Amino acid sequence: MAASRSDPMNAEPDLDARCRALVADLGLGTAAEVASVTHLTGGVASDIARVVVHGTSYCAKFALARLRVAQDWRAPVHRSRAECAWLSRAGEIVPGIAPKVVGYSDPLQGFLMEDVSGPDIYLWKTAMLSGASRGEEAALVAAPLAQIHAAGAAPGFDRHPFRNAADFRAIRTDPYLRATAAHHPDLAPRLLDLADAIDAATTTLVHGDVSPKNILVRTGAPVFLDAECATMGDPAFDVAFCINHLALKAAHLPANRQPLLAAMHAFWASYASGITWEDAGALQARVATLQPALMLARIDGKSPVEYLDDATRAHVRHIARALILDAPDTIATLTARLERTLTP
Rank of each mutant, 00 (worst) to 15 (best):
L192A: 11
P185E: 04
H183R: 15
T219E: 15
A188R: 09
L187G: 07
T180W: 00
A181F: 00
A197W: 01
G220A: 14
A200W: 01
A165M: 06
A197P: 05
L205Y: 12
A179N: 07
A166R: 11
D209F: 08
L177T: 07
F168I: 10
R178H: 08
P185A: 02
P189N: 09
D167V: 15
N214S: 14
N164G: 05
S211W: 11
T173H: 06
D209I: 03
R169H: 13
L177P: 10
R178T: 02
H183F: 07
A181P: 08
K213Y: 05
H184P: 02
L187Y: 04
A188P: 11
Y176I: 01
T203M: 12
D199W: 02
A201T: 12
R190N: 03
A166D: 15
T203I: 14
P189L: 09
K213C: 04
V217Y: 09
H184G: 00
I171C: 12
T180V: 03
S211R: 08
P185K: 03
A200C: 06
T204E: 09
D167L: 14
Y176C: 06
A181V: 05
P185T: 11
L192H: 12
T219M: 09
L194N: 02
L192R: 14
H183I: 00
A165P: 00
A201F: 07
T202A: 15
L191F: 06
T219S: 15
P175Q: 07
K213M: 11
I198N: 03
P185H: 06
H184D: 05
I198Y: 07
S211Y: 10
